[in-house]
Structures are given as structure tokens and as C-alpha cells.
Nucleic acid binder design. Structure first.
Lengths: 184, 184, 184, 184
DNA sequence: AATGAATGAGTTTTCATTCAT
DNA sequence: AATGAATGAAAACTCATTCAT
């Protein structure tokens, strides 16, 4: 069935990527074999390789999707509110699967490309926050702390789905308010 | 079949474990083959299996060592100071290799045992902090936020060795002081 | 379903065959994928299969072209001169690509059809030479030696484009003259 | 069964190499899968890779063995006689399998290493013949012709086991004698 | 106690070929 | 006539683990 629409192509690609993401989140990147992905997405092995040249490329693409999602979430409005929104999203269907984050991070250790990609995500957040301009000298360190909070929340959520996310976010909000008031 | 001293046994075990840790930190858990470890530690494959029943066991043992180290660091004195000390240690020879943490976390996704082990580390910190008793109702959430900060610092340090750790720790200290003052 | 001229068909076929030959000569028969050929000739995979039922068929067809070329070259005039002409052609644009010969020969090992085809080429030369009738009893062996010289020249030319072909041909001519004189 | 004698190791290596050579001669290099070789030599796939890092390395080693064999055969005594001895050997158990030669030659097309290896075989023969010193200016071309005769004989023998090798060799001997006489 | 040769199931990836459009 | 998406079997190669010595 050749000469197929662009939409079909894009849908196929997404179908494969979603299957891969599901497998990675469930079994881990390295415990997921291509065969697993093939089984999950229901197309042939050969076709998977028409869309992605390797497992590595799949996970890289997942990261890029994720960064795009976050960029949108932080784009406009109040930075602090947007940030808290991202925290709230963790562990829900709206946010990225925290277990995937752990898989990606493990790959950053051996792959410079992956590391660069992961860092670029943090860096863009730092820039976005800096651009708002309401923060003083030690701002960058503070932003990095807030990023760390987000990263740690991903870790903890990956380990415990029953986690009281709301209480965590509340604690962070209080913290942020103290910071603002302290600065006045 | 020569009988050998306890010290010899313990030293051998540590030698193998250190080699494994070095490999995991450098190449990642799954990209490290047993052959790599064997080459790194200079003993035979057979002997490695007399000390550790599997690769999984090695990484579990690495986590246990780490928890023990942290338990000591948090044992006595001011909780907040101890905590900041742990942060300061990140990325230095005294602290555990952050890249190893990322490897461990990836394994928690597919292995309930690893997940339980990793969670137990966080839980003991929560208990330790709770036991001190100086914290009010929302304390547990706050402790979890502080654990998240620590975890995120590990992530960021694994990605960037040039990171200004001191500024990060300072920002956290300021944050902690605000919290304390706020409560008074 | 447009009907198309015979010429168009023949041209298409030749276009595909030339692309295949170029790939085989460059990368070897088995290192050339159908995708490579498709890319080289600029038509679709499906269309290639309308002209050739398999990769094997392509190389068989290349051999047939080659035999036809040689039959023409040996058809009329002095056998010895024609033969030397063939030698001179080796490595030039007029003659077949020596690297292709090596590919064909490798296939003769596993395919009886290819072997029969290749042998038929030698046999027809032996017959052609015998038909001339100027050669005595040991003639057939001598013809086979001359064929061997040709085959060996293909091998050596495939390995070394800088080869001094002229000197080689001269040596053969001297040899042939000695043989003739010896017989008188 | 570790700590094994050097002889054991060498024997194992030869066992694998012989199995590979048998497969290559029977089915061709590319039609032979590693599984075929594993089946033929009766050891595990993993072990094969302990001795040879790839199929390519196997065939390269086969070529080296062959060159060594030929070097010995040409070492001392009358060059022409040694040469005729090599021709006589073709197709017998003493000489290398001609079908293997065709496999090797096909690989020279895509692999510079293989090409260099193959050429080095011819070059050492040219040097050996030149060293004898009884040949005049056009000697090198003549030597190359004789090498070509040998190569062509391999081709023809690979195609036809029933070939009258003796008649071929006789024809070559006559030719060589004419050359010598002609020079006096 | 220590070795390292040996295993074989499992991995990622390729590729000739088909067929719906 | 022509396309090229889709297949799936088979390829080369890896690696955690065992066990005879």
C-alpha cells in the first residue's frame, strides 16, 4: 500500500513510539527487546526500522517530545504557577511517565548525545526562568534547585504511585512564597 | 584448597565491587558486561561468581553500601547541617558517584526488589527527620521535597561535572533558613 | 495502465541492469542490497521485480551479455588476434568489469545454474578455437591455458588498476608466436 | 575446563577454521551462516567468536594459510618445476580448494584489506621468481602471465572436477620449455 | 581458592520480496 | 506502468553464567 498520506506516516510513527515508551516504562530500556516493541505495536520488525534506526533513536525522540511538552507548559503566564502546574502533572496521564525519565537518565551516563539532550532540557528551563527577570543574583542556583525538586519528584513518583503528590506540591508552593516574601 | 583469612575475603569482595562500580559509572549497568568487570578487577569470571551471584546482586550491594554511608552521615547532630553536608559531598570523592545513582534508579523500574531497596533509603531519611521532632504537620512533605532536592542534585551533577555545587547548596541553605524563620 | 513501446521496455531493463552491475562491481554481489540497486537506478523496488525476478537473475543476465559480447569479438578473422584483442580490452570501458567476473565466479560455487552458464562461456571459446582447425592434438589443453590466462588477467586487473596491461599482452603474444613457430 | 594447553587451543582454532573452509567451499562465503559453521565444527557459537571475531577474519586467515603453503612450495629448487608442481596440486587434497579461491576473490572487491592480502600473494611470487634471476627484461610480465595461468586453472577446476588437469599442466610445461629455448 | 574455556539462548538488525493502491 | 509500505525469516554477534580442572 504505497503512496500513503503524510498523516498515515505520522500516525504510524507515533504508534511505534508509544509502544516503545510503554515497554520502556514497564520493563526498562535495556530489558525491552526490539521484539517486545514489535509485539506491542503490532507491526513488523522491518517496519519499525523504517521509522527508527535504533532503540537509541526512539528514546531520544521520546525526550524531544517531552521537552516540547514542557516548553509549551512554561511558555506564558506566571512562571511559578506554570512550574507548580508541571509538578502537579507528575504521575498523571498528562505528564510524561516518570519511569521513562529514569530510563533516559541512565542512558545519559554512557551517551554524550543523550547527556547533551538531557542538559538542554534543563538549560532551557533555566533560560526561561531567567528571562522573566524577577529574580536576583542567586537566581540561577535557585532555579536549579527548583529543577532538582522536579527531578526528585519524578524519582519518587516512579517508586511510589500512591505518593501524596498534592502535599508535596503544597510544600513546594509554601517554599516558593517564603522566597518571594523574603525578597520583598 | 587453601583456607584464607576473613580479611582477604572481604578485601577481594570490595575489590570486585569497586571494579563493578567503576564500570557501571563509566558505561552504565547494561552496557557493562561481566567480562568488563572481570577485566577491571583482574580476577577470573568464576571467582566473581563466588562473591556475587549475579550482576543484579552487585548493584544491590552498591546501594546498600550507599545507604549505610548516608545513615552514618545523618546519625547525630543537627539534621539540617547533616543534610547540607550530604549535598556538599555530591560530586566529590567522599560521596557516592551520581552516575551510579542513575543506574540504580533505572533498575528500580523493572525490579521490585531494587525499588523496595531504593525506597527504603528514602523512608529511613523520612523517619530520621521525623524522629527529630522539630517539624510540624506538613513536615513529611517537606522532607520529601528536601530528598527530591538531593536526588535532583545527583542528576544534575551526573550531567555536568563543572556544576557550581556550592551555589546550589547555598540556595538550599537559604531556603531552609526561611522555612525555620517562617515557623517561629 | 498505459501501454508502452518495446524500446521503452528494453531501455528500462538496461537501465536497471547497468545500475545492478555498477553496484555489484563496487560492493560485491552479496553486499549489494536490492535497496542499493533501487537507489542507483532510480525506479521503485516493485518495478525492478517486473523486469527481473530476483537478484540472481540479474547477475545471470550480466553473464549472458558478456558471453554475447565475447562471441562477437571472436567471430571472424584471426583467432589469435581476436584473442589478444580481448586481453587488451580488459580493464577498459569496452570490456566487462573484471570485478563483476569475480562476483559471478563466487556464485558459481553454490549455484549449478551459474556454474553451467560460466562453463558454457569457456566451452564455446574452446569450440570456436577448435573449429578454426589450425591446432593439433594438444590444442584443447592449450586453448584452456589461454582461457586461463584471460581469467587470471581479469583477477589481476580487478586487484590493481595501475597494472601494466600492455606488457602482459605483449608477453602473451610472444608466447603465442613461439607456439606457432614451434609447430611449423 | 580452563587452563588448557597451547596445543588444545591451536587444535580448536584449526578445527573451527577447517569447518569454515568446508562450508565456504560448499556454499560460498555469503551463503554460509555462522550457524552453518557452528553446526559443522560442533562447538558453540560463543566459542567460535573467542577464536575469530568475524567471518571476515576467518577467510583472511584461510588466505594466510594458503600463502604460507605456497611460499614453502616455491622456496627451494627449480622455480619452473616448483611452479608446475603447484599446478599439478590444483584440485587435489594437497592444494587449497579452488572454490575457496573464488570466494576470497569476490571479497577483494569490497574489502581493501582482502585485496591487499590477495595482492601480496601474487607480489611475493613475482619477487620469488625475480630473485632467481634467470629471466630478462620482460620477465615480470611473463611471471604475471604464469600467475594468471595458475589463477585460471583454479577457476576452471572449481567449475569442473573432471577436468584433465594433466593435459593442462603438460601444455604449460611445453610452453615454458619453448620460452627457455627461445631465449638461448 | 582460583581459573577461563565453553555454553546457547537471546539480542539487534538487515533484506529479498510482495502486493494494495 | 509504477509505487513504496510492509513483511518476517534469517543473519551476525553478545553475554551472563557454569563447571571441569
Amino acid at each position: 500500500m504505497p503512496k500513503v498520506t503524510e498523516e498515515h506516516l505520522a500516525a504510524r510513527r507515533q504508534q511505534i513510539l508509544d509502544a516503545a515508551a510503554a515497554c520502556f516504562a514497564r520493563e526498562g530500556f535495556h530489558r525491552t527487546s526490539m521484539t517486545d516493541i514489535v509485539r506491542e505495536c503490532g507491526v513488523s520488525a522491518g517496519l519499525v526500522y523504517r521509522y527508527f534506526s535504533s532503540k537509541d533513536e526512539m528514546i531520544a525522540e521520546i525526550v524531544r517530545e517531552w521537552h516540547a511538552h514542557r516548553a509549551v507548559a512554561l511558555r506564558s503566564g506566571d512562571v511559578a504557577e506554570n512550574y507548580l502546574g508541571l509538578l502537579r502533572e507528575v504521575g498523571t496521564a498528562d505528564g510524561p511517565d516518570p519511569r521513562l525519565a529514569l530510563q533516559v537518565w541512565a542512558e545519559t551516563v554512557r551517551s554524550p548525545e543523550m547527556r547533551a539532550l538531557a542538559r538542554s532540557g534543563v538549560d532551557s528551563v533555566r533560560q526561561a526562568a531567567g528571562a522573566v527577570g524577577e529574580l536576583p543574583d542567586d537566581a540561577d542556583a535557585l532555579v536549579r534547585v527548583m529543577v532538582a525538586v522536579y527531578q526528585g519528584l519524578l524519582v519518587q513518583t516512579a517508586w511510589d504511585e500512591e505518593l501524596d503528590n498534592a502535599a508535596f506540591v503544597d510544600a513546594v508552593r509554601v517554599l516558593l512564597e517564603r522566597v518571594k516574601r523574603g525578597r520583598v
